[in-house]
Amino acid sequence: MDKINNLVEFTKVSKKLGNKQVLNDINLTVASGEVVGIVGPNGCGKTTLLRLVTGLIYPDRGEVRVSGRAVRLGLIGELPASVGALIESPAFLPQLSGLKNLTILADIQQKINEQAVREAIKRVGLDPDNRKPVKSYSLGMRQRLGIAQAIMEKPNILLFDEPTNGLDQEGKILFSGIMKEQVEQGAAVMMVSHNKEEINRYCDRVFMIQNGTLHPVREQRDKSWLIITNNLSDLEHIYQQGLLLQITERVDGYPAGICKGKWKNRDEMMSFLTEIGVKTVDVREVENDYI
């Protein structure tokens, strides 16, 4: 089978809910291994965009393609496959435990066994053997369980709506790690939030919805690089190029600094440094929140 690069494609999509034109002529693609963020105020159509991908609603005009297949009514109301979603606050069966809830959901597709469900619950920092009913969970615990249900079947496409709602600092770090894992495994991620800071932190490309149309906010993500040099003058030289550089603690006794930029990979970064005459001991890509 041909590998599909763009896992989600919106082509001139419009959608009206009630009397309100929520989306108007939306064009957007999300590729495998990419995180795309949508920001905008409440009620601007962010969640509608995610629902279009799940098939919970269909577009009035235009086409939504998921994993290369158009999301269409069909004869029986077809739904796209391999989509993991956390849309709005997760709703579980309140009287059952987290494990039981997720096992019931996993039984629908029968792709994974209970062991895999347990691993997903552990991955989000919850105890799969916790027999307390979900109704006794805190907001943060429910959100973690919601993230677990979205990732447990290792879908190709992940949709997150305000994913860090109710998460504490530890939960946010955990979520960041999960996102990284999923992207490395080739998942296409769409995330919507009214919190621009959160979106900027996780997403490669960022768009804003205004009056039903998408406006690019950032087309490419700045990556952070830890540059370890033999002497401070090399770091000064980088700074003199007008780049954003922050000196950090020495690494193995060598001077080091974090530099942010649009270099796609380590090779591109190394060739840039060679070009400006900087000799390095090592260069590593680090998390944006490393500093």
Partner: peptide, 17 residues
């Protein structure tokens, strides 16, 4: 209304099922 349908339908093959 409580959003549970979303969890089910992202796993179902069709609305009919």
């Amino acid at each position: 209304n409580n959003g549970y349908a979303g969890l089910i339908l992202t796993r179902a093959r069709s609305r009919l099922s």
